[in-house]
Design a protein around this nucleic acid. Structure first.
Length: 481
RNA sequence: GGCCCCGUCGUCCAGCGGUCUAGGACGCCGGCCUUUCAAGCCGGUAACGCGGGUUCGAAUCCCGUCGGGGCUACCA
């Protein structure tokens, strides 16, 4: 039997990293098995669904490199892959189930239902214990699936092993709302059956719903899919990853300048490993090694620190300097809130290699090179007070004098001139170079000095040394930032 | 409350009865390198929740316990 898996996000929010990971595992499984990866949009919640979210989901999956073979955006042999287009089909299934006695119309009020739940709770039973087919016949209301009470539901979960649920804890769940729209359980299961999904690979939060899906599929006369429940993703507090934890939208990582390759690699490691040693691996290597059955059962905490490290690793070892510069450019221009001129772009490219090994995310680039593009740099107060000690004035003056004469204006000549100055003044590199760094870049932290000056250009360098000296002389703090 | 899942360093992952004085990665700490910051290199810190079994032998199997989590809607 060929493998057909799907990811079925509901467009009620931006693509969540948890869903992205579920998509990733489905994709890995499909690619490893030579199967089919399907994208379906579960928009049965018409009120909360929004096309913007659907677009975000598609963009996010593409960004991660998870291409799908069938589904929204690419089509396929099953017609629409959007559930809102299939409401008639779901309604038909629900009605058929009623006709064959496997489901029933229920017009009990919320109050009556609540009462039944309370009673069950009080008796220490499952809340749905008393919510079964009532004696009276209804002619309107919701349609509930009638859970057969004669046998437990057993299935073999690929990651968790054999699961058994006794029928009294599976409630007679609603499959069709009173307004005629299907619930998730119905729509999802009908689609899994209709689209011949072989494996349902999803989050563990749906583990307890699985008996419902199996029962429904069987009632439709189908063989239920094989199920595999992935461990959940937690925030640092050990709770299911949610908005409270900050960035749960994949797009925010994309916008912060994480590389899709790094994100892919990191996500793959949450609940799976290629082997005992390997941390960094390619998509291809992951596809080759992936086994659904070796997915971990433990929930995983999303660790931003490790992601940051990994992204830095990808930036500095998997990207050529040209690639880095090109990928950094949009982030740089956004940070600067303007486009770069050809001259400025060249200036950036001069120091790109040095910046490349210093950033963890692309959005940090602008902080490293802002001094190259903005004249009003201001001075970081702490940096200033740390280096502008007695003797700094002399260093700045001397540096200016010597830099004026440097020819050609490149990092080698600049370094030679400044090192000669250090020797003549008999000051160490730390003491002699830091004031220059702060004067020119505004901060005691910057890319290497000589290359920075070379990229900045002689005129700007001299002007900044001049400005720093003026400020030093006046004792003014008007340029502090 | 009911049902279900999970339990190895702070975090992620390895370990599938002996090779474990428990391995890798992030983080953290220290050192080296060094014009700052990074990076790099070297070294270190740190875990089998607890209690019973089973077994010649358990991180690995079983039971209990404790802890964490999920579900419990006319959301998905």
């Amino acid at each position: 039997m060929s493998v057909r898996v799907r990811i079925a996000p509901s467009p009620t929010g931006y693509l969540h990293v948890g869903n992205a990971r579920a998509a990733l595992f489905n994709w890995l499984f499909a690619r490893h098995e030579g199967g089919t990866f399907i994208l379906r949009i579960d928009d049965t919640d018409v009120a909360r669904s929004d096309p913007e979210f659907e677009r975000d989901i598609l963009d996010g999956l593409r960004w991660l490199g998870l291409d799908w073979d069938e589904g929204v955006g690419v089509g396929g042999p099953h017609g629409s892959y959007r559930q809102s287009d299939r409401f008639d089909r779901y309604r038909q299934v629900a009605e058929d189930l009623v006709a064959t006695g496997r489901a029933y119309l229920d017009d009990r009020s919320p109050e009556e239902l609540d009462e039944l739940r309370r009673r069950a709770q009080k008796e220490g039973k499952h809340p749905g214990f008393y919510i079964r087919r009532p004696d009276r016949e209804a002619t309107s209301g919701v349609i509930r699936f009638s859970v057969p009470q004669d046998a437990p539901v057993t299935f073999d979960d690929v990651v968790r092993g054999e699961m058994t649920f006794s029928p009294e804890v599976v409630d007679d769940f609603v499959i069709l709302r009173s307004d005629g729209t299907p619930t998730y359980h119905l729509a999802s299961t009908v689609d899994d059956v209709d689209y011949e999904i072989s494996h349902v690979v999803r989050g563990e939060d749906l583990l307890s719903s699985t008996p419902k899906h199996i029962l429904l599929a069987r009632a439709m006369g189908a063989v239920p899919a094989t199920y595999a429940h992935l461990p959940l993703l937690f925030g640092p507090d050990g709770k299911k990853l949610s908005k409270r934890h900050g960035d749960t939208a994949l797009r925010s990582y994309r916008e912060a300048g994480y590389l899709p390759e790094a994100m892919f690699n990191y996500l793959a490691l949450l609940g799976w490993s290629l082997d005992a040693e390997t941390t960094i691996f390619s998509r291809q290597a992951a596809v080759e090694a992936f086994e659904l059955s070796s997915v971990s059962k433990n929930p995983a905490i999303f660790d931003r620190d490790k992601l940051d490290w990994m992204n830095g690793e990808y930036i500095r070892t998997r990207l050529t300097t040209d690639e880095f510069a090109a990928r950094a450019r949009p982030f740089l221009e956004r940070g600067l809130t303007r486009g770069l001129t050809a001259d400025e772009w060249a200036r950036f490219c001069e120091v790109a290699a040095l910046v490349q090994e210093r950033v963890k995310v692309l959005s940090e680039v602008v902080d490293q090179v802002r001094f190259l593009f903005e004249d009003e740099i201001g001075y970081d107060e702490r940096s200033w007070s740390k280096v502008m000690k007695p003797g700094a004035e002399q260093v700045l003056e001397e540096a200016a004098r010597r830099l004026e004469a440097v020819d050609p204006w490149d990092s080698e000549s600049i370094e030679a001139a400044l090192r000669a100055m250090l020797a003549d003044l008999e000051v160490g590199a730390r003491k002699g170079l830091q004031p220059i760094r702060v004067a020119v870049t505004g901060s005691s932290v910057s890319p290497p000095l000589f290359e920075s000056l070379a990229a900045l250009g002689r005129d700007r360098t001299l002007a900044r040394l001049q400005e720093a000296r003026r400020r030093l002389a006046s004792g003014s703090d008007d340029t502090l930032r």
